[in-house]
């Protein structure tokens, strides 16, 4: 009997304390409401909200303010990834200007150049541009890429006259194998949600 009373007072007093403090915070939030620019609120809504700090801002709110003020790129949020960057670009009106920035988001895995050898004319333009001497070949000879030396800088892709070079993920070998990232778009389609 006595224990039952203690339990009841404990439950009641903690409930009362919680409700009282909750009411206090609720009133304070109304009473001391500070108008913030709606765009910051909108951006904050889009962000993951985990305050992980990977963007180097203290929390998503600060990051949202920086994005709204144009002090940070829309691609600042690693957990949000490409999808968030696209949404932020839409909200802030950065538009097409960010397409090139987004290139780095497409695949987090390191990218290397790959030459389609049947398109290569052996013009040597790419191998002159390569900063790491990762392209081997000679004039009128088919070039090829040394994947271990390639840093995926995109310079050769720009100059190739026959568009024979693309950047793609490193060929997987036992030495560089890793787990793939979970494919969210695939899961979404499985759940019947169109993305």
């Amino acid at each position: 009997m006595f224990e039952g009373v203690t339990m009841l007072t404990a439950a009641l007093s903690m409930t009362a304390l919680g409700a009282g403090l909750g009411a206090m915070l609720g009133i304070a939030a109304r009473r001391f409401h500070v108008e913030t620019p709606p765009i910051v609120d909108e951006i904050e809504q889009l962000m993951p909200g985990t305050n992980c700090g990977q963007c180097s801002f203290p929390g998503c709110r600060a990051a949202a303010e920086a994005v709204a003020g144009g002090n940070a790129p829309v691609t600042l949020c690693p957990p949000g990834g490409r999808d968030l960057a696209l949404q932020l670009a839409e909200v802030t009106g950065a538009g097409d200007a960010i397409e090139s920035e987004l290139a780095g988001f497409e695949d987090a895995a390191p990218q290397v150049a790959f030459i389609f050898e049947d398109h290569c004319t052996g013009c040597t333009k790419c191998f002159k541009r390569c900063p790491t001497d990762a392209i081997v070949g000679a004039a009128k000879q088919v070039h090829t890429v040394v994947t271990d030396a390639c840093i995926g800088c995109d310079a050769c892709v720009q100059v190739c006259p026959t568009e024979a070079i693309i950047l793609r993920g490193k060929p997987r070998t036992l030495a560089n194998w890793y787990w793939g990232k979970p494919d969210l778009s695939h899961t979404a389609t499985m759940l019947g949600r169109a993305t």
Partner: peptide
């Protein structure tokens, strides 16, 4: 109320709420 065993719980609750209030 003879509820000393709820000290940690109630302290966390009250301190967190007061800090939040002060922030607001």
């Amino acid at each position: 109320l003879d509820l000393e065993f709820l000290r940690i719980l109630s302290f966390i609750l009250v301190i967190a709420a007061i800090v939040q209030f002060t922030e607001t």
